Structures are given as C-alpha cells and as structure tokens.
Simulated scan of single mutants.
Amino acid sequence: MREIIFSVLLFWSALALGKNLNYSLSPDFVGANKVEFIAVGDEVGEVLKGSLIDGGGRRYKIPDVCEPEGGNAELSDAYVVKGKKTYFLFTCAWSIQHSGLGIKGVQYETFVYTGSNLAAIEKNDALSQALSGYEGSLEGGESSYAWYVSRKIASKKLLDLEVGEPKDSLALAHDIVLARLKNEDYEAVSSYLGSERINQLDVDFPVSKSTVVAYNDFGYALGRSGENDLAYKVLKKVEKVSPGRVVLKLNIADVLWGFDKEQSRIYYKEYVGLMKKAGKEKLIPEEVLERSE
C-alpha cells in the first residue's frame, strides 16, 4: 500500500513544479497517439485537465477532469486498452485523511472512454466504477483495497468485464496476489484470498496441470500471510496433481511447521533430497537443513 501512495506523490511532485504530464498512447485511441494533462489552479485547488492529441497535432478536450477532493488533484496513469472495443483510461488519485476517525489512504477514480470520433468520446460509467476504489484504513480499523489500480491489472479486469465476466479470472487473481506479495502486503493477500474466493476459483478454474503454478503461488502467499490452514488446503490439492513439484515440497513444509513439525520435517527432507539430486545443494537455505534433521 505504501508504494502505491508513494508513486502517486511522485506524479504530484511533477505537477507541483508546473510540468505537463505527457503519455504516448500505444495502441492509439481513435487516431490519438498522445495525451497531455496540465494542472490548472482555481479557488479550490489544482484541477488536472487533459487533451487527446492526434497524429496531426490536433487537440481534443477530455470531458472529465481530476478535481481536488480534499486535496490537490493527482494523476496515476493514462493508457489505452484494446479489446472488442478500444478504450482510453486515465486514473485520478488523491489523499484522504481524517485522523480523528482513523481514516487514511488514497482514493482512485478511473475514467474509461470509448468512441469512434475524438470529438465525441463517451464515458463508460459501469467500467469506470468497477476500476475505481479506495486504498487505506477505514473508521472501524479495517482496511479497504483498490485491487485494479495498476495498468496491467486494470487492463485484464476491463477485458474480463467486457465479455460479461464480473468475477476475477485465475490469471487476474494470480497477478493481483503476486503484486501484493512483491510489496510484502500480507494483509492484502489475506483479504483478497479468502476461502470464498479460493472456492470460487477452484470451481471455475480447477487445479490441474495447467493451473498448478497459480495455485502453488496462492498457497505460498497464504502461508506468508499467516493463513496456514487455507494455505495447506490449497497446496495439498496442488500435490495431488503435481506430486513431484520440488518447490511445492518446501511450501508445504513451511506451512506445516507452524502446527505439525513432525509432518513438516518429512517434507523438508523430501525437498532437501530432491535438491541434492538435482545438484542444487548450495541453494538450500540453512534454516531448511536445520528443520529437516
């Protein structure tokens, strides 16, 4: 969560210095291959206004702007997604803080446009709402997450929604989990990968030879997040499909260590044996060797 907030602040720093923000659009959007945003001050604060620019340099005003919402307007990203239709997206972000209520985070609002004429592009309200969200703490002490902020993840979510699939696909869920895991945001992993979502994914995308990588990563991520029971359940399903998977032995051993050390040692020993057989003994962590004894 901290990295997302930090990146937004970097964007704002550029604006505060009076610089325009320019993005090249590839693929283009209805002939526009560039978009430019500029900060304009008014009595309330800074407003970000954008223009789409075609190959001939003609500029077309974007209907919506990033308005100040308790703070100056900020820009997170602007890009094009090509599916059955071609979409232009830009995301506004602003900090929200109510210290007395324990609320602190970033609100993201994404605008999604389609059209066949740059002079008359239309906002898709349903897609815009689906890709927007708040990331941060809530009044009751809980946390809220904006899952679809990054360009890669938002693009996949949009394409899923375009074909009428409201639930996250396995590929999308995998990307979300890996992104949070990379940032060591274990609370977010626990929030996203609850039992209900795991069960839904298993129904729609059963554990098989083609899906074991994603489910192995889910099990690992859940283990890192302290969700050992659910992690073990997921990893055991992977084991039934791919019992010889080396890294799986280590993941199961790590999860079991918290509540069944005897069984955990068996998996550690299997992992150590397979690594030695593959000539990778030097890559075995010292902690694993100690636990396998």
Rank of each mutant, 00 (worst) to 15 (best):
S264R: 03
E239G: 09
S264M: 06
G258Y: 04
P243G: 12
V246C: 07
W257I: 05
S242M: 03
I252G: 10
K261F: 00
G258K: 08
K261W: 02
L250G: 08
K269V: 07
K269F: 04
V272E: 13
A231R: 02
V238H: 07
K249V: 01
D260K: 06
Y268C: 12
L274Y: 03
L248F: 00
F259W: 14
Y271V: 09
I266W: 02
G273E: 14
K236A: 08
G273A: 12
W257F: 06
S242I: 01
G273L: 03
L235P: 07
K237W: 01
Q263R: 04
V238I: 04
P243A: 10
E270Q: 15
L248W: 00
G258E: 14
E270S: 14
N251I: 01
V238E: 12
V234I: 04
K249E: 11
V234E: 13
A253C: 10
I252T: 08
V246D: 13
K249W: 02
N251G: 10
I266N: 13
Y232K: 15
S242Y: 02
V255G: 10
V247S: 13
R245Y: 00
Q263M: 03
G244N: 15
E262K: 06
V272N: 07
V272T: 05
I266P: 08
V272A: 06
Y268F: 15
G244S: 14
V272W: 03
V247Y: 03
K261S: 14
Y268E: 11
V234P: 06
K236V: 05
R245Q: 13
R245P: 06
K261E: 14
L256A: 05
G244V: 01
G273M: 03
V255K: 07
V247E: 15
E262R: 06
G258P: 06
G258V: 01
W257Q: 12
F259L: 11
N251Q: 10
V255H: 09
L250F: 00
E239T: 05
L256Y: 00
G244E: 15
L235H: 03
S264Q: 07
I252E: 11
L235R: 04
E239Q: 15
E239I: 02
P243M: 06
V246L: 08
L250I: 04
V247T: 14
A231Q: 08
G244H: 08
V246F: 02
S264Y: 02
E270L: 10
V234D: 13
A231L: 02
Y267P: 09
V246H: 06
N251P: 06
Y232H: 14
S242C: 04
K233D: 10
G244Q: 14
L248Q: 08
V272Q: 08
L235I: 05
K237R: 15
L256R: 00
L274G: 05
L256T: 01
I252F: 01
V255D: 11
Y232Q: 12
K237H: 09
V246A: 09
V246T: 13
A253D: 10
V241N: 12
E270T: 10
A231V: 00
K261N: 10
I266F: 04
S242H: 04
L274H: 05
K236G: 08
Y232C: 09
F259N: 15
G258D: 14
Y232G: 07
S242V: 02
K237P: 08
Y271Q: 12
I252N: 09
K261Q: 15
V272H: 05
E262M: 06
E270R: 14
D260G: 10
L274V: 04
G258W: 02
K240N: 13
L250W: 01
L250K: 08
K233C: 05
N251Y: 00
A231W: 02
